[in-house]
């Protein structure tokens, strides 16, 4: 049994030019609606109606019992072989001459390679920018803005403050950050501050003060550009603890126990026009001493859970550009 070939069945109804006239009429109506509804549209309607009527008459000829002109069926597929077997395409007069051995590079090989090659080029032209767009923006335009934390007078010397602020006020609640800040008084004639990030050095949960937080003395400071600072006095006598996996730190942020791999991160700061300005955060392996006399072992900011000292630091040789 052979497969049905295109053209085995007779066209029914036969080919006709009227549909084209009908389409032209419809197009004329649509164009006329824009250009000149009074003149061109009626012309289009006439063309469409006349051609449509003739088309319908033509198409229903057989149905109405009128004689239909016999049409030679199209023959698209291979003809059924009658006597001799078909000549394969690589034989016979029309076939390409067999190339000499040694310089064989048939045309179909060339076309195959060209198709695959162009396909790869087009695919690359589309994929490379798309993947780049997916990956690169995550590593660009980072960095930390300078955040105004309000007048220095708000920070009573020797007192810890749970200080909440917006890293990017325009981004809203998602940029809400907390730092533990203590005014250490003067050091060599300059103000000294300890600013500890609440991001746990284990996996980044927010650490909490181990001691009373005086919510009734909460102070809100509204600054320009939607910045709102909340200051709550606290006495972290037992240092800081993380609610997620139990990491514990002393009051200077040194790891005491639990899974953290280093001390709590800190922030640089500056004093501008009597305001405390928060700078970029940095990582700390450990701190010796306390308050303004503390000796801080400072490193470039790394993610939580990454060692900055010891032999494990070789596991994190490169950092994304923060």
């Amino acid at each position: 049994m052979t497969e049905p070939q295109h053209g085995d069945r007779r066209h029914s109804p036969g080919p006709s030019l009227y549909p084209i006239g009908f389409a032209a009429g419809v197009a004329c109506i649509l164009v006329g609606l824009i250009i000149n509804p009074m003149v061109i549209v009626p012309i289009g309607v006439v063309i469409a109606v006349v051609c449509g009527f003739l088309w319908a008459r033509d198409a229903t000829k057989e149905f109405r019992g009128e004689p239909v002109a016999a049409i030679e069926p199209e023959r698209g597929g291979p003809r059924e072989s009658t006597d001799a077997p078909a000549i394969p395409p690589d034989r016979g007069e029309a076939a390409m001459p067999e190339p000499d051995p040694g310089e064989r590079f048939p045309r179909n090989r060339f076309l195959e390679g060209a198709t695959l090659g162009f396909g790869a080029v087009i695919g690359g032209l589309v994929t490379v920018p798309a993947v780049g767009f997916m990956i690169v923006p995550a590593f660009k335009g980072q960095g930390y803005p300078k955040v105004d934390l309000g007048p220095l007078d708000n920070f009573t010397p020797g007192q810890w403050f749970v200080t909440k602020f917006f890293m990017h006020p325009e981004a809203g609640e998602v940029s809400h950050r907390t730092a533990y800040i203590r005014n250490n008084g003067q050091l060599n004639g300059k103000p000294s501050f300890t600013i500890i990030s609440n991001r746990c050095a284990h996996l980044g949960c927010p650490v909490q003060p181990n001691g009373p937080v005086q919510d009734n003395q909460k102070k809100d400071i509204n600054l320009p550009k939607g910045q709102r600072i909340t200051m709550i006095p606290a006495i972290p006598a037992g240092g800081y603890g993380c609610p997620c996996h139990g990491g514990q730190y002393d009051v200077e942020g040194n790891r005491v126990s639990g899974p953290p791999v280093r001390a709590l991160d800190r922030y640089d700061f500056a004093i501008v026009d009597g305001h405390l300005i928060l700078g970029t955060p940095y990582s700390v392996s450990h701190v010796k001493g306390e308050g303004k006399d503390a000796l801080i072992y400072k490193y470039k900011l790394t993610g939580p859970g990454e060692h900055v000292d010891g032999w494990e630091q070789i596991l994190y040789p490169l950092q994304p550009p923060h």
Binding site: I135, P137, A138, F139, Q142, G143, M167, H168, A171, V174, S175, L203, G204, T302, G303, P304, G305, E306, L315, Y316, P317, L318, Q319, P320, H322
Partner: peptide
């Protein structure tokens, strides 16, 4: 951050997942 602690490429994986240095 757990992904970020993977050796060598971990910090980059974390930044890729966050679309930046911080969740935002």
């Amino acid at each position: 951050n757990l992904n970020g602690t993977a050796p060598f490429l971990g910090p980059f994986l974390a930044d890729f997942l966050r679309g930046g240095g911080e969740i935002g």
